[in-house]
């Protein structure tokens, strides 16, 4: 039982990373740290997908003439994660752009202070 759990260390790492990321997103007040937390969370999902499709001793899944009997890793999770990385990059870029704007408006990166400043009239 314990051996089974330990042998799936990749998933355990993904779960730990996921919760580190989620915790950072929820507990930190600083917007940049929240974005970093989001990225850690995304990375954990990437790790989960990639390790799911990996095969021990597997090669990159590209067919070259005369290599039909090679073991390949599963290319599908990799393709999915490439797309997910693009999405994560876009989300991060947009979040950073918003953070720049918020800093310009309020002069702080603290989410609580921003809320206080916003609720002040004028």
């Amino acid at each position: 039982m314990i051996y089974q759990v330990i042998s799936q260390y990749n998933y355990i790492a993904a779960v730990i990373l996921f919760f580190i990321g989620l915790y950072t997103m929820i507990s930190r007040k600083n917007l940049i740290k929240k974005i970093i937390g989001l990225n850690i969370m995304d990375t954990s999902v990437f790790l989960f997908f990639i390790s799911m499709g990996s095969v021990e001793g597997g090669k990159a899944p590209i067919i070259v003439l005369g290599s039909e009997n090679v073991i390949y890793v599963n290319p599908l999770p990799q393709a999915l994660i490439l797309t997910a990385i693009v999405v994560a990059v876009s989300v991060t870029a947009f979040a950073l752009a918003l953070t720049v704007k918020l800093y310009g408006d309020y002069g702080t990166l603290d989410a609580d202070k921003i809320r206080e400043l916003r609720e002040e009239p004028g």
Binding site: A60, I62, V64, L82, I85, V86
Partner: peptide, 9 residues
């Protein structure tokens, strides 16, 4: 991109 790992992105 279609021969080795890598590609447009």
């Amino acid at each position: 991109g279609h021969l080795t790992p890598g590609g447009g992105f």
